[in-house]
Write a protein that binds this DNA or RNA. Structure first.
Length: 271
DNA sequence: CGCCAGGCCTGCACGC
DNA sequence: TGCGTGCAGGCCTGGC
């Protein structure tokens, strides 16, 4: 279930193998992801060279001279670098085959991911054009969060997960960042003081940085691994810990639903 | 068997 | 008008 740190780790894992490499072929085994994989991708990419790789929100952007391949891992997607002719397994839907003897393979059991093509300025793509700032960029700061939440009466957890306001905060890290900032997830966003906005900005950056560092430490296993990059071993303060004692005060962690997603918090520590 | 998890787009209805 | 908001639906599989 890739959140931003997993996507960032994936980017770092695949980038060295794709950079300046020429695509020799594209294999589409099952085109029915969130949107259909364009059928003409093989013709579009054959004999073209990867110029650059980057991440925007949870999208991986692989750019060529004539356009950009947009990848999203959805909830169950992973990418691996493998030798040519490695046999595909059940949920291996897409391969980018490189002239250097390797291939990049997308596995996505639940098929919520995406493989799209955009010619021209990728930032103008409908999926990317409306996105808010990156949480790890300097532009995402206390002033920004404070101003952006003044007219938002919705719960702060829903607001920080709104991609128009900011990107990259999924359910796990939203819960964890709010716990660390001692902010109750149901709090109306506009009620946050400037100081609490500053704290939340800090804890969001902190949980994401920590997760990326941990993911990075398992990067050596990226190739030939299952692509999960060791994120399973992370410890959480609140996520998935319903009824278990708060690691700060011992009170049982509560679970509620917000926007059809589970929220976890300590009613004692978070106000 | 049913329920749940995950990301996130889409559509609808409402009120200001 | 056009937002913000809340809700539901859709896309899937695997694990409990």
């Amino acid at each position: 279930m890739p959140e931003l740190p997993e996507v960032e780790t994936t980017l770092r894992g695949i980038a060295p193998h794709l950079q300046q490499q020429t695509v020799s072929d594209v294999v589409i085994r099952n085109a029915s992801l969130r949107w259909p994989i364009p059928k003409n991708l093989p013709q579009l990419l054959r004999n073209h060279t990867v110029r650059n790789l980057r991440r925007r929100a949870k999208y991986l952007l692989i750019s060529f001279d004539h356009g950009t391949l947009i990848l999203h891992l959805g909830m169950s997607g992973s990418l691996r670098i493998l030798p040519h002719h490695t046999l595909p397994e059940k949920h291996d839907h897409f391969d980018l085959i490189l002239a250097n003897g390797k291939l990049m393979r997308l596995r996505d059991p639940r098929r919520f991911g995406a493989v799209l093509w955009h010619a021209g300025d990728v930032n103008a793509h409908p999926l990317l054009a409306q996105l808010g700032p990156e949480p790890l960029n300097a532009e995402f700061d206390a002033d920004y969060l404070y101003q952006a939440t003044r007219n938002r009466s919705a719960a702060i957890k829903l607001v920080i997960m709104d991609n128009h306001l900011m990107v990259g905060v999924g359910n796990i890290y939203a819960n964890e960042a709010l716990f660390r900032a001692a902010i109750r997830p149901q709090l109306p966003a506009h009620k946050l003081s400037k100081a609490r906005c500053a704290l939340l900005v800090q804890t969001i950056k902190e949980v994401l940085h920590e997760a990326i560092t941990k993911g990075g430490s398992s990067l050596r296993d990226f190739i030939h691994s299952d692509g999960s990059s060791g994120f399973f071993q992370q410890h959480y303060f609140v996520y998935g810990r319903t009824g278990e004692p708060c690691k700060h005060c011992g009170a049982p962690i509560k679970q509620i639903k917000q926007g059809q997603r589970s929220s976890f918090y300590c009613a004692q520590c978070q106000q």
